[in-house]
Design a protein around this nucleic acid. Structure first.
Lengths: 231, 231
DNA sequence: GAAACTACTTAGTCTATGCTAATTATGAGA
DNA sequence: TCTCATAATTAGCATAGACTAAGTAGTTTC
């Protein structure tokens, strides 16, 4: 009998930790993380996600509302933040101490974050001077599991002149989401408030750095949650 | 129904790479690595080893002679040396750049060696100045997979005055092995040859650093293979 | 050279994680 | 309200790696 030929391209395996991380990212945008979004992010099939979701809710790491999606429990959130800390510290360490560039570092950190001890992460954090942000500006959770919660303002409430980073889009409505995307209003984009009409009128913004202006009606401007960027 | 309780102490899983590493170490002492020795080193059951041995020989990484033991094929040897390089570079990096001591570093390297990329290992090797030995004096295989084969002398043949590291004990006899262990004659121990009686007589050694003397008869001294330590 | 001990292998399971195919729920449009 | 598309779930199976219990092959001893 032929020896069984080893699959030259075995399926990826993503651990529980990977699931928790993407659930954290997906649900931070608006409550529930959908099965299919988790599947897309991890590049696994939906049934695989359903199976893992069952296991994770049995162990109390997530809450699952069938056909709606999942949310992290406090315990799950802690585990997710721990991984995010590891990831961001690793990325920073590899770039600052071992000459990695930002392109190549993600994949390396992605593998290492599951293998390093907490001790090693803290040693790296010390070597880096206990950094609070990674080079993307993303806050690094503390070892205790706290993360700086950005204080977000609705665009409709932001003062004229403020420089903002769009962080969350507070709707699930596909039509509105599509519209925002068409307008370039996706999380991460930088903008300034250039003008607001009186009596709760529309807000005029300018994209940074292009300066490209846009007018956003009051109701939509209430859905766009932004973080003020330090002067 | 109660949700299944997660085993709080799940069985260790050791990968193929771990098996290859211990097979390398065991078979470097004398041809074949025995199933039970592999099991003891990896702290898994013998049937687990039998199962893995079957898989590894099907993939051509080892040769298996039933009831005798296993040996690495050239391919398996390459894989094992790659892991040994990773392990030793990691240990060195962690101690020299992140303040680890020799006690704690082994376990960390043991986990990381499976997750790091070759690229990262080479960056660490550069940061360390392409080291050839780890602090135990063990040679670090090159990236190409070559390792310095230590030239060993039998203690019976070593010149008086030489400083030696005991490397291999050339017998499988349990009684002799037990005796050597009682005498402190285990691989890794440092000693000097202080005197040898004429006409193939016994050798007197002194342990380093204790200076503790011991007399070893000719026949036993022929079983103790040592490496000369550079002055 | 047979009995008995030890070492190894085989048989049958278990768990985690993945998959495909089939089924069921939900929500949008007619 | 009914139908249908899409999303989510269940069913059934695969694989790697572990385990225990049971059987078999070598080895030692008288």
């Amino acid at each position: 009998m032929q020896p069984t030929v080893r699959d030259p391209n075995p399926p990826l395996t993503r651990s529980v930790e990977d699931y928790l991380k993407v659930i954290y990212h997906l649900s931070s945008q608006g409550g529930f993380a959908a099965t299919s979004d988790i599947a897309a992010m991890l590049e696994v099939s939906s049934p695989s996600v359903s199976g893992m979701v069952k296991r994770l809710s049995e162990t109390g790491l997530i809450e699952h509302v069938p056909y709606r999606g999942v949310q992290l429990t406090p315990q799950g959130r802690r585990a997710a933040l721990r991984m995010i800390r590891r990831h961001r510290i690793l990325e920073l360490y590899l770039t600052q101490h071992l000459g990695y560039d930002w392109g190549g570092v993600h994949a390396e950190a992605e593998r290492l974050e599951h293998a390093v001890s907490d001790d090693l992460i803290e040693r790296m954090a010390s070597a880096l001077g206990q950094p609070q942000y990674d080079p993307h500006g993303d806050p690094i959770p503390t070892a205790a599991g706290d993360i700086e919660e950005a204080e977000l303002v609705a665009l409709a409430d932001a003062r004229v002149g403020t420089k903002l980073e769009l962080r969350q889009v507070g709707t699930q409505d596909p039509a509105r989401l599509r519209y925002f995307a068409e307008q370039g209003l996706t999380p991460g984009v930088l903008l300034t408030v250039s003008e607001r009409q009186p009596f709760d009128g529309p807000t005029t913004i300018a994209f940074v750095p292009s300066g490209d202006p846009r007018v956003v009606g009051r109701d939509l401007a209430r859905l766009l949650w932004c973080q003020e960027i330090g002067s």
